[in-house]
């Protein structure tokens, strides 16, 4: 029963890591770039929702605030690529990493200046309710996290396989030049993927902030989510989710069965081991450079 409880609480955290990791992988697959600001976009999405719905701010109904925030962050992601990231086309991968780290700092500053640096919690209609299954207690907020993650996964799967835009995105991520020749507007598709990354980040942010509280440095969670993405394999969307869940589950177990301080260490130790023994993650294959 104890194990089950740990598993359940780890699963909810893991879903959030997985959702942020999804954003990393989306952008990596499409543009070979790593968006280190993904965690900060999650934080920004959460704060925008909070600003729209919390009493004391704009006080809109939760179910209006969330789609609105998602739309805003989608546009934000799109514009970010259009105005900044696109200029880096053809530059070294690590230059983009450094650029997005810096962008993350700026986002953190912006959020801190507007909303303050104190932790705040997002007001949700389902706050504080519990579900009980035998001895296992599951907060409604945690259930919502899991359900939303599953739903988003299904939607993304359908989007990438059934819609014209989704197929175009897949095509341009697999071979940009060929996609370009086939008449796919590769640049616009890339901006749209950044928009999509903004959308998933916001969903992750809303779920995160409704489970606990959010402050401007919450974006640092992105580092852990990035670790999850690498553990799962940077090239695969299911891998990202799997990596997130592995990291989420390993944390409570490490702190329960090893010692309290080790829940921080465990994910990175795992990351290091994965990198050393399976450098390209659990669900990805390796290509050697050809000469």
């Amino acid at each position: 029963m104890d194990i089950l409880q740990l598993l359940v609480s780890g699963l909810a955290n893991g879903c959030i890591y997985g959702l942020i990791a999804l954003g990393f992988v989306l952008i990596y697959k499409a543009t070979e770039a790593i968006n280190f600001a993904q965690g900060d976009m999650m934080m920004l999405g959460a704060f925008i929702t909070l600003g729209l719905t919390n009493t004391g701010y704009m006080d809109l109904p939760f179910w209006i605030a969330v789609p609105l925030a998602i739309a805003l962050m989608g546009v934000f992601g799109y514009l970010l690529d259009l105005i900044v990231i696109r200029r880096m086309f053809g530059e070294a991968q690590i230059a983009v990493v450094i650029l997005t780290i810096a962008l993350g700092f700026v986002m953190r500053f912006a959020a801190g200046t507007i909303f303050g640096h104190e932790p705040q919690s997002l007001e949700t209609p389902y706050a504080g309710q519990d579900l009980r299954f035998g001895g296992v207690v599951l907060g409604v907020d945690e259930a919502v996290v899991v359900i939303a993650t599953v739903a988003l996964t299904v939607v993304l799967f359908l989007f990438f396989n059934r819609t014209k835009l989704g197929v175009a995105m897949q095509a341009s991520s697999q071979n940009q030049l060929a996609a370009y020749y086939m008449g796919i507007p590769v640049r616009r598709v890339q901006s749209l993927i950044w928009g999509l990354a903004g959308v998933t980040a916001t969903i992750a942010g809303v779920l995160y902030a409704s489970k606990g509280s959010i402050d401007p440095s919450a974006g640092l969670l992105g580092i852990k989510a990035f670790a999850a993405a690498v553990i799962g394999g940077m090239g695969s969307l299911p891998g990202a989710l799997l990596g997130g869940i592995i990291v989420g589950v390993i944390e409570p177990f490490a702190s329960r069965y090893v010692a309290a301080g080790y829940s921080q260490i465990a994910p990175y130790l795992l990351l290091f081991l994965v990198l050393v023994f399976r450098p390209h993650g659990i669900l990805a294959q390796v290509h050697r450079k050809k000469v």
Partner: peptide, 14 residues
């Protein structure tokens, strides 16, 4: 590249 960067990042945290 990025994999080395993330491995060293993990070392920093560890």
């Amino acid at each position: 590249g990025i994999y080395l960067a993330i491995a060293t990042l993990a070392v920093s945290i560890l």
